[in-house]
Design a protein around this nucleic acid. Structure first.
Lengths: 251, 251
DNA sequence: TGACGCAAATTCCTATACAATATACGAAAT
DNA sequence: ATTTCGTATATTGTATAGGAATTTGCGTCA
């Protein structure tokens, strides 16, 4: 026992974020640090293509290599990280075709969710969706853009959760991490315009009317517009969001 | 070093399957054994609720705990395995609500894929889909049920891959592992009947016609019928497939 | 029969070691 | 000066040992 360091667990402290997140729960360590590292990637605190050195992360969170490598493995399955043999974990590069693919998947998942909500019309979910819709209108009218964005995310998530399908919800959550990462990278936000408002109206109408195909179509048309905006702002040199730009292809 | 066992890697031999799968590639060990263990679970060689003892699997594949635990972590993200602290890896239990959810997700992913194929009409994919469709008709006419099942799986996979969206394809692949596991558990197979044939016709027609909404609807109606069959055969005591039955709820 | 408690087994994590590979750096050649 | 090459260093992949925490099994006792 000549170890110079004591073996006890240190509190997990993120050097990168500065936040002190003392860990007291008894859940496995990798489950505790996973959300932190994932969040750092989605927020671009680790940039695309950047390497994640094991030892640095071990020190940052005060854990050994074993649970840390667990986290990196999980992040690889989620696609946020790429594990290259003998190089290690690299933040998955951003590129336009992949992003387009993810947006399309997101749209598809929200469409089938909307269809299901319109079909089942679960009262609690409908109520929640209508509440968020109204709050969004209010925020838009008052020019509260930040609040609007948050509500908009909640609105879409509420539709997905409202379908009651945890499998679809999990898929949606995962793909949303990718989309959020790209939008954060380019400082892109949901447009706050007349067209979006009309689309939201149409979606809510179809859900209340119990019109599955109409709900799916309304969601599809809404997201088609969103996708165009995201790809415009993320793939091309941003007008005001700095000079960030992602590669056009990975092939 | 007083280790009584030699440290060199043994060839990976599956005791459970009896198949000798010598591993020579230089890709990481966990990538090599992952497909084997996953396959064993999908084929119910490890039954639902059964524990996967680490040491036993280590010996089976001739690897140490480190890469084996990597595999179990990945399988947990995929949902085929549940990792319980201090108990370890357990094959995820089967239950009707979860299965219904997965079938619904599968249907949704195939719908949006069909929509995309009808929209883009990629020549290679269309050709492949038509080829498989014809081969299925042929197999059905000749009563080649096993061949029919294989072709049917390929048909659905071809539609998903034809959409050209790798993200959706990956989601579909993952959810299909779950569906296959349940069907294998209950010896359930795609019905080979008139209704399914008509649905397949309608799907191919819509794809060739370039009718996205029609393709989605045809796929939806087809899968609605499949889902009813699967749930009937899997959730209830099987008529001829033995006396297997899965729990009705996990809650 | 049922409840309790101890012992054994298993897992989670730490720590360490070594092999395989990548990266960095400097020397040699052009 | 630039490029090429080879060596030294750093990092990762895997193996392994051991302690802490927890579950599981078994035996005892009421």
């Amino acid at each position: 026992m000549a170890g110079k360091e004591r073996a006890g667990r240190q509190p997990a402290i993120s050097r990168r974020t500065g936040s002190r997140t003392r860990i007291v729960s008894k859940e496995p360590i990798h489950e505790q640090i996973l959300p932190h590292i994932r969040r750092d990637i989605v927020l671009n605190r680790w940039a695309p293509d950047e390497r994640l050195p094991e030892m640095e992360l071990c020190e940052e969170f005060g854990v050994s290599r074993t649970p840390l490598r667990d986290v990196l493995k999980i992040l690889e399955v989620e696609g946020l990280v790429t594990l290259v043999p003998h190089i290690g974990a690299v933040v998955t590069p951003l590129n336009t075709p992949d992003l387009a693919e993810k947006l399309e998947a997101m749209s598809g998942l929200e469409q089938i969710s909307a269809m299901k909500v319109a079909e089942l019309q679960p009262p609690a979910a409908l109520k929640q969706i209508k509440r968020l819709h109204k709050a969004m209108e209010e925020a838009a009218k008052n020019g509260q853009t930040t609040k609007y964005y948050a509500l908009n995310d909640e609105f879409h998530r509420a539709v997905v959760l409202g379908s009651g399908n945890a499998t679809v919800a999990k898929m949606h959550e995962t793909v949303m991490w990718h989309v959020s990462r790209a939008r954060n990278y380019a400082n892109e936000r949901e447009p706050l315009n007349q067209s979006a408002a009309e689309h939201h109206d149409a979606i809510v109408d179809a859900l209340e009317r119990g019109d599955p195909e109409g709900a799916a179509r309304a969601m599809r048309e809404h997201l088609a517009e969103v996708i165009v905006n995201v790809l415009e702002r993320v793939a091309r040199p941003a007008a005001r969001g700095g000079d960030r730009e992602i590669k056009d292809s990975a092939a």
